[in-house]
């Protein structure tokens, strides 16, 4: 799944057409089929991914696949409630694995619109499908410039490599 996504994002130079992503197409309502919508994906240094739809200003926060691999089996997910206003870099919840707790930091400032309720029964979705079915929450983004400041996939991969060399 991840390799497919990578291929898609490369061909689009870090922009993936919503139509190429089943989940994105299902999740995001369309006014007309002719509105040009860009779904972009960015990564924070805290290993959150943000899938951003510029037509709605809503970003879906996910744990990066790299991060879920390092974390091991997630057994409990705790998230702030919808309606909570969050600042970029602020904690919006936590993931518990057997070995440790990892805070989830918001990659952008905004308001939490929805949390992934499926995670309360199936926290393992984070491991199985961290950047898709295991999404964490949706945030109405205050300032789209926050999104532009995130790393693209290539930069993030480089960041992870450098981090593991430290």
């Amino acid at each position: 799944m991840f390799s497919a996504l990578r291929t898609a994002s490369r061909s689009g130079a870090f922009a993936v057409r919503a139509a190429q992503r089943q989940a994105g197409a299902r999740l995001l309502p369309r006014a007309t089929p002719f509105v040009r919508t860009l779904i972009t994906k960015g990564y924070s240094k805290e290993h959150e991914a943000l899938i951003f739809d510029d037509s709605t200003n809503v970003g879906t926060v996910c744990i990066s696949n790299h991060a879920q691999e390092k974390l091991g089996d997630v057994v409990y997910v705790e998230l702030s409630s919808p309606g909570t206003k969050v600042e970029q870099g602020e904690s919006i919840g936590a993931l518990e694995s057997v070995k440790a707790t990892s805070e989830i930091y918001s990659p952008v400032s905004g308001t939490i619109e929805e949390v992934n309720e499926a995670l309360s029964d199936r926290p393992g979705l984070i491991n199985q499908s961290s950047e898709k079915d295991g999404w964490v929450c949706k945030i109405k983004v205050d300032n789209p410039a926050d999104v532009k400041a995130l790393m693209n996939e290539e930069a993030y991969e480089k960041f992870c490599t450098e981090e593991s060399d430290d």
Binding site: G72, D73, V75, S97, V98, K99
Partner: peptide, 11 residues
């Protein structure tokens, strides 16, 4: 841990 065996499976 060893290989791809997770902490829970190992436990």
């Amino acid at each position: 841990a060893y290989g791809s065996v997770g902490a829970i499976a190992s436990h």
